[in-house]
């Protein structure tokens, strides 16, 4: 989008003004996230830059809030919970979602649109409604006394349900470029369907499966509405603990946790990007 040589003076001014506007919008997008990182090293229990910090004195900075996480039983417990729930929900969502995507990408599946609509509905329904509905139902499934609220199983099932649409969508998208003749070839060579799945299909769609799994993991890892309604004190996750922190006892420990989460999301973003590029390369799409 370089400035064309025939551009007049007004166009020249506009060109730079436009770039400035864009820079301001990017600033708006990214600064709120970056501002947290230096503040998490604050030596004082404030949510703002102290004079010491602004003059870059070493005394203005400290790792005390990070130590706070390590020494705090509740935070450690919530970190453990987030990973337990996240990984369990991801495994469930990925297993169900991948197999379903194989079925959905077959041309001869009856009622395809209806099935697709049902399967991605957890993504469509606003979270507050899903959470409310699941809470009502899980507190007494089918009128029984077997409550799933305040259990790990309940939270994991709910998160798995919320994560499956992402797996279904990414894996179905990967399967669009999948050459069906490979299946025919391997089955004519005597492979049974389990072998075909693990030796032929899986290696090719793996990038899609992994990025779907990452989406499902992030959905669970970042989810707080279901946890608010469904989880007891025992099942508190990181976002739930942050929620409590913001509402009740606000301390820069939250900023330290937030910084760690930003690092995690950077890693996830990089992974997804690499997978997407690999997938496009495999399918011969380049840019």
């Amino acid at each position: 989008m370089a400035l064309p040589s025939y551009a007049g003076p007004i166009e020249r001014v506009w060109y730079y003004a436009y770039r400035l506007i864009c820079a301001a919008i990017f600033f708006f997008l990214i600064v709120p996230i970056l501002v947290i990182i230096p503040l998490s090293f604050n030596a004082e229990p404030y949510f703002t830059f102290t004079p010491e910090m602004l003059s870059f004195k070493a005394s203005g900075y400290s790792l005390r809030w990070y130590q706070d996480i390590v020494n705090n039983e509740q935070w450690l417990h919530s970190i453990k919970n987030s990973f337990i729930i996240g990984i369990a929900a991801t495994l469930l969502a990925t297993a169900f979602g991948t197999v379903a995507a194989l079925g959905l990408s077959r041309a001869d599946l009856p009622f395809k649109r209806l099935l697709m609509a049902v399967l991605i509905s957890p993504m469509i329904v606003p979270l507050i409604i899903s959470a409310a509905a699941m809470f009502f139902f899980y507190s007494a499934p089918f009128g029984s006394d077997f409550a799933l609220t305040h259990t790990y199983a309940g939270v994991i099932l709910a998160h798995a349900a919320l994560g499956t649409p992402f797996v279904v969508i990414t894996v179905t998208a990967t399967l669009v470029g999948f050459d069906k003749n490979l299946i025919r070839a391997s089955s004519s060579l005597g492979a049974d369907s389990v072998t075909i799945f693990f030796k032929v299909i899986m290696p090719l769609i793996l990038p899609g499966v992994i990025s779907g799994a990452l989406f499902a993991f992030v959905t669970s890892f970042d989810e707080v509405v279901v946890v608010l309604f469904m989880a007891g004190f025992e099942q508190r996750t990181i976002p739930r603990q942050m929620w409590a922190g913001i509402r009740e006892q606000i301390s820069p420990t939250i900023l330290a946790v937030a910084t760690l989460l930003i690092c995690l999301s950077t890693v996830l973003l990089a992974t997804i990007e690499l997978l997407r590029r690999r997938n496009e390369r495999l399918r011969g799409v380049t840019y």
Binding site: V99, G103, L104, V125, A133, L157, T164
Partner: peptide
């Protein structure tokens, strides 16, 4: 082939029905 395609989708369908769709109707 149709049945096989459906059988692949069935586990997830059942899962979503029990964990999500029925709760919505319950609501």
């Amino acid at each position: 082939s149709k049945i096989r395609a459906f059988l692949l989708v069935a586990p997830l369908l059942l899962f979503i029905l029990v964990t999500f769709i029925i709760p919505i109707f319950d609501m």
